[in-house]
Design a binder for these strands. Structure first.
Lengths: 222, 222
DNA sequence: GATTGTTTAAAACAGTCGTTTGATTTTTCG
DNA sequence: CGAAAAATCAAACGACTGTTTTAAACAATC
């Protein structure tokens, strides 16, 4: 029973922190949402801050796994990039995992707290290294570019993160109906094609065929 | 004297809201920072919420001007894109304008409040329309693509917004020294080249020359 | 100089915040 | 079972929140 309360508390707090931020989420709301007494937070975690880092750790553990797995080294590099991008996009709305995991990490990335700088390092670094390796595989020499090729990697991931951070704006600009049509598969295909074209691989983004090249689409594991 | 208090209040509040969010910034901190009495907020603005929208309006007015101006219709389309991107980047760190203007708009875009949906519309829409026009000029047919070409525009602006939203992460990943080398001019050149390459114009991003093509660099007005 | 209306000041308002207390219930285990 | 430990509970703590009040200082007009 004790561990279950801990879990319910982390889940309720994670949702609250992701949605309203650390200051905006009150311990009373969190406890009421989790169906426990207000004193439970201090009993199980010590204080609100420690509960926050507990949420962050849980979000971190589950986050990067599937993205990295989707970019299996055995695949051709274009398919790896597609898997990487699709993995990041899918992590935003994975039904098997609480939605707040991704949103909370995003908040922390935009406005890092002292408690989480180290966690961020462990969470982001392996993803960045994997992407760098994939890009070097696609376009040998990109790692040797100015600033170690970081800007190229940023240009790729920025397109993915955009839809996570600015989805409200996208909805407002495109309208509800059009926005809902931007599902994970479409966006993964678009971002992959855009990035590959920028790297000189694959057709330009404006072409006769709006479908992705066959090799990068179907061979990606779900 | 009355108007000066209003101004000092908006400036102090804008900085506080941009840095710590609406909930995180207390009226006492704001007033102490502005050097006025706590009652001044309610006297001049009514309540904290109205002060917030006053900050948002001020940030909105000064924001989009220079970005749009930098993309003058008389220039060749590639230079217009470069100017648009450079304008957005420069707005992030323009010394002539309070730094909180851009940061506050970003916060509002990521987590919109009810009071600001309309403001967002007026602020973002003209920028989006201008970019769409530039892209159509560069690659005729892009507006007729799936979802009216929105994803292509998003792929461009996302690269710019990335450095505004996730700069702390960039600093952590690259290290302090390397990060500081990513100035406005370098990033504008990189993002423009990456995007043009994706659109099939200009050299690929990984090429013998890391410098931007001549036509797009020098002809951009500052 | 008195009398307006406008702006500032200190103090207090009710309410919420995160946290703690101390008693009570539940669980664990010899 | 019965004692020890763990967990939950309602209630209250002081500090802080946004807001209001009331009085004083200021400015401008007659």
């Amino acid at each position: 029973m004790a561990e279950e309360v801990r879990g319910r508390l982390i889940d309720a707090a994670g949702r609250a922190f992701a949605e309203r931020g650390f200051e905006g989420a009150s311990v009373r709301d969190i406890c009421s949402d989790a169906g426990v007494n207000v004193a439970a937070i201090n009993y199980h975690f010590g204080d609100k801050q420690s509960l926050y880092v507990a949420c962050l750790e849980q979000a971190q553990c589950s986050e990067s796994r599937q993205t990295l797995l989707a970019a299996a080294p055995s695949l051709p590099p274009e398919a790896r990039l597609h898997g990487f991008i699709r993995g990041m996009l899918a992590a935003q709305g994975d039904p098997d995992r609480p939605r707040w995991h991704h949103a909370l990490m995003l908040r922390e990335m935009a406005h890092p707290t002292t408690a989480a700088a180290a966690v961020l390092q462990r969470y982001i670094r392996p993803l960045a290294e994997t992407l760098r390796e994939i890009l070097e595989q696609i376009s040998p020499g990109v790692s040797g570019m100015s600033h170690d090729g970081w800007p190229v990697g940023f240009s790729v991931v920025s397109q993915v993160l955009f839809y996570a951070v600015h989805r409200p704006v996208v909805r407002l600009l495109m309208g509800e109906a059009e926005h809902d049509a931007l599902d994970v598969d479409f966006l993964a295909d678009h971002i992959t094609r855009f990035s590959l074209a920028a790297l000189g691989r694959g057709p330009n983004i404006v072409g006769p065929s709006a479908a992705p090249s066959a090799g990068t689409r179907k061979t990606v594991p779900r």
